[in-house]
Design a protein around this nucleic acid. Structure first.
Length: 372
DNA sequence: AACGCGGGGAG
DNA sequence: CTCCCAGCGTT
């Protein structure tokens, strides 16, 4: 014997682990080939389509993205058309998806790709990573799924699946946990015959089977490799987060109608819903009385409502909104026809308010003489 | 390392 | 109602 027994034992164990790992990978990929959902961004692949899909899918459920992705691609079929588009129109197409900064990053990334890379999406994760809005996950997802690069991906699904396979109940937000997950994903993708398909399969499993609550272990193709299931702790992974207290903000929207038109303003360049349209809205830590709302309004807006009768007040979710009829002829602010706002980017709550006002408000027009 | 960003669905 | 979700950029 050339080697001491201890070394042989270790080598045997390592090869056994590797063999089990390839069985697992094969079972997962076979399941994915059989059960993969038919999603709009699967099928005809391109770097551009993947870039759009991945941007939309960040923090957003697949069902939400399905509705928007097709319309977005139809409006901006090529990366050049997206790069040449007006930001407001990009935001309008993004409307309802939330996290609007993603849309601006995507727009900026398209411009960079057109100007610096001849309109061709980079194929290396390291290069993709430099684009605005493209982080470690997104770069690796595009590089592996579209271009077949052997890059590991870790999103929330992967983190949960791997934690359960290994029965690790560490807090998912800890940097040590994240590092372990990336390391494990790297080992796995190194052994996968098709890196892109494996990455997609891992995420798909987390999305449809290995769900955060009530995982469908009876339908899981790799249940027999799952240590959490064996130990009966799959529902306790990941562990619940420590109480995160969120301070809430009350929005008071002031709808001012005149002659079938509504007064709108555009939000500032920074913060929530930046550069999107809304009716004038006051934000406060606590619910405000009507008088306080009026007092907080910018002077030009306040002038419009000060001497007019209060018309209507109701609440939609956490937004209280007030409807006034303005008789003043002031031309300050931007008046838009209530049915002519489809092309303006607005948050969902704001758009819903206008829809409700349009449906329920009595004729707020006064007379033709009011129209300027 | 912690926080901000925004929707929708579940409980 | 409240809680949950989970990538990227900023601070």
């Amino acid at each position: 014997m050339r080697y001491p027994c201890g070394t042989l034992v270790v080598e045997d164990r390592e090869s056994a682990v590797k063999e089990q790992q390839s069985v697992l990978i094969a079972a997962l990929c076979s399941w994915f080939a059989r059960e993969a959902r038919d999603l709009p961004w699967r099928g005809r692949r391109s770097g551009y389509r993947a870039l759009v899909a991945e941007a939309m899918l960040q923090q957003t459920q697949v069902s939400r993205v399905i509705e928007r992705y097709t319309a977005f691609i139809k409006r901006f079929p090529t990366i050049r058309q997206l790069a040449d588009a007006d930001e407001q129109e990009v935001l309008t197409m993004w409307q309802g998806l939330g996290y609007y900064r993603r849309a601006r990053h995507l727009h900026a990334a398209a411009k960079v790709i057109v100007s610096d890379y001849g309109g061709r999406v980079p194929r290396q994760a390291r290069t993709l990573r430099q684009l605005p809005g493209v982080g470690r996950y997104t770069a690796a997802a595009i590089a592996s799924i579209v271009y077949g690069r052997r890059e590991p991906v870790v999103d929330g699904n992967v983190q949960r699946v791997l934690a359960r396979w290994h029965a690790r109940d560490d807090p998912p937000q800890d940097s040590a946990t994240i590092a372990w997950t990336w390391s494990r994903a790297t080992e796995l993708v190194a052994a996968a015959p098709e890196p892109g398909a494996f990455n997609e399969a891992l995420m798909e499993l987390g999305a449809v089977v290995c769900t955060p609550k009530r995982p469908r272990c009876s339908e899981c193709p790799v249940a027999r490799h799952c240590n959490a299931l064996h130990q009966g702790c799959e529902t306790r992974i990941p562990p619940p987060k420590p109480t995160a207290k969120q301070r809430k903000v009350h929005h008071h929207a002031v709808v001012i109608m005149r002659a079938g038109k509504v007064l709108l303003e555009r939000r500032s360049d920074r913060g929530m819903w930046s550069r999107m349209w809304q009716v004038p809205t006051i934000e406060a830590r606590t619910p405000l009385r009507l008088t306080a709302v009026k007092r907080a309004l910018p002077a030009p807006v306040c002038d419009l409502v000060r001497n007019n009768a209060f018309d209507h007040q109701t609440t939609h979710r956490r937004i209280t909104f007030h409807v006034y009829t303005a008789t003043s002829r002031s031309r300050r602010g931007l008046w838009r026809r209530a049915d002519d706002i489809a092309d303006l980017p607005m948050s969902n709550p704001q758009r819903r308010i206008l829809a409700m006002v349009a449906m329920s408000a009595p004729r707020s027009d006064h007379s033709a003489s009011d129209v300027q």
